[in-house]
Amino acid sequence: SEVHDIFTTLRSQLTVDQEVKESLQRLLEPLEESVRELYTSLQAIHNPGKQSIHSICEKGDVMLLTSREKLGALICAVPIGRYYKFNFMWSFCMQRLVTCISLIHFLRNGTLITQVQVSNNLLIESDKFNLTLEDYLVGVLILASELSRLTVNSVIQGDYQRPYDIFKFVSELNAGFKLLHFKNDHLRKKYDSLKYDIRRIEEVVYDLTLRGLIPETEETKIEETQ
């Protein structure tokens, strides 16, 4: 019957859609696996034991090679013009990647990596696939959380300089976020956590200042930040 014909057509359409989605899912899984491993290996900064921060970052670079490759395969499979139909699938993964890349960048340079730099790092061609602004911002907020935890662990390891560096950096991040105005959404909720992170960092810096554990050239440095 006529109805039967209509549905036969629809079936093939639906099948194509589902196959695209499934093939993306299959390509996503190894990416997720590699990002999880990257993230876990970077967690070593909190309790580095005999490793140096430097070597942890280098190990991160190596693992990023894999993530970049897996991401490349995923990007190839995304159908043109339908990026936003599927991007919820890898949103979590991209946020984690931003956190990892910006963490390595901060540990090396003490600065914030830009959205474009992350995209370049990940070899994302912007016409069919892009790092959304939301994912970049969420990734940076998670970075602030990691750094907040790192101030505490730095002190345990006897490093009194890093907390000041983080204090300076996250204060600037905080000022930056205040320039943005979020509607009531997912991002706003994440942003609320920044307040707690910054208070925690302030407490650590307070403890160090009070005990005179200010790094030698600190006076000047704090001056400059402000």
Binding site: H46, R149, V152, N153, V155, I156, G158, V204
Partner: peptide, 8 residues
């Protein structure tokens, strides 16, 4: 971590 921090 917090406990070890204050111990330190």
């Amino acid at each position: 971590e917090k406990a070890c921090y204050s111990l330190h």
